[in-house]
Design a protein around this nucleic acid. Structure first.
Lengths: 191, 191
DNA sequence: TGCATTTTTTACCATTTGGTAAAGAAATTT
DNA sequence: AAATTTCTTTACCAAATGGTAAAAAATGCA
């Protein structure tokens, strides 16, 4: 399937668009590839892009007070990658979004992302539904403090089966809030 | 200050409104009081209201698989109270929003909340900014799995000083993902 | 392929947190 | 005010998790 098609399929889940509107979207975006390790968005800069992941896994992370690398989220196929609130409010981001595997993305510049409102009547509604679902899922699929480490790991397997085999375990450990050693022990005791 | 004024002040932080638009909003909403323990929104029902907290603290919570009462969030003055995604998508909620102290709220019915788009040009934008900020803050001010229990407690004190003295410690414990006994021990060791 | 680097596992012990029980304190009801 | 209920603290021990170190495995690179 063409990269564009997966984007359009995704968008159409949130509202209806006619053929010319779809063409307009296709004309506004850019396709990019990110090699493993390359940053899509960086701390210290004002985010300027919204990405749609066609292939690969990205990782959102930040440095905590002790300088440790903490994974806030994984972003796999058919999801949006963006530090959205800082993008909207023109503020400096404090976290990184980095390709965790080789990735293919479709990118909207901030101007394109927002400008489509002028040419597509329902764009604002679709856009907000997409963003809100993203935020919601990130929080609902994420690790829960009230669970112990094993339960968080099992939930992770359920919620992100497509991520499990493609990213280093140390990132998963930092996502789940445990040391690599603990995660290793947990995996051993479970399987 | 009148209850309405705090609502309008809040809304104006997200966009501009003229006098007649403000009047329109005031005419659409209802003021209510909730006694401690009363539910604003319940699991098993489709949420139908968006509330703005003028006074008091509410608590969002759900039952986990073991039947334990888990606190997802505290909602204090000048915040929105709603199970927003289920409100929007007309789906049955799985969590409760309950008055934790006696509360005063200003309430939009779903119809009013959405209908204002037709009479106020910028309402959609304002509405979405409010909702997105709410979602964002809930996740950013919430407890982080990578921190230990003491750090989570200290962060809570920083992020929700206005809540600390007004809700039972057992709710704070369930919010932080620790037992009451652990929280008690932590508090003893810190102060 | 072979070497260097990174990632993962294992082990040991210290520390933190949970589970159970019970006492004490505070709030609520009668 | 007294009684009841709810909330909080304390104590003890078991279980889970972290810190340090080192070995093993996997990956990337020359």
């Amino acid at each position: 399937m063409l990269m564009m098609d997966s984007l359009i399929d995704y968008i159409l889940r949130f509202g209806h668009l006619n053929t010319s509107e779809i063409a307009l979207i296709k004309a506004s975006v850019t396709q990019i590839e990110l090699k493993k390790g390359v940053y899509f968005s960086e701390a210290g800069a004002i985010p300027r892009q919204v990405g749609f992941v066609v292939q690969g896994v990205l990782r959102g992370w930040y440095y905590n007070q002790d300088g440790e690398d903490i994974t806030r989220c994984f972003i796999a196929e058919n999801s949006l990658a963006a530090d959205y609130l800082n993008l909207e409010s023109h503020q400096i981001s404090t976290e990184y979004i980095q390709a965790c595997t080789d990735c293919k993305l479709i990118v909207f510049s901030k101007a394109q992302w927002e400008g489509l409102s002028h040419s597509i009547a329902g764009w604002d509604i679709i856009k907000n539904k997409m963003v809100q679902l993203c935020m919601y899922q990130k929080s609902r699929k994420g690790p829960v403090v009230s669970q112990d480490a094993s339960s968080r790991y099992l939930e992770f397997l359920k919620n992100y089966p497509e991520v499990m085999l493609r990213v280093p375990l140390r990132y998963i450990a930092s996502y789940l809030g445990v040391t690599q050693q603990s995660l290793s022990r947990i995996r051993k005791n479970i399987s």
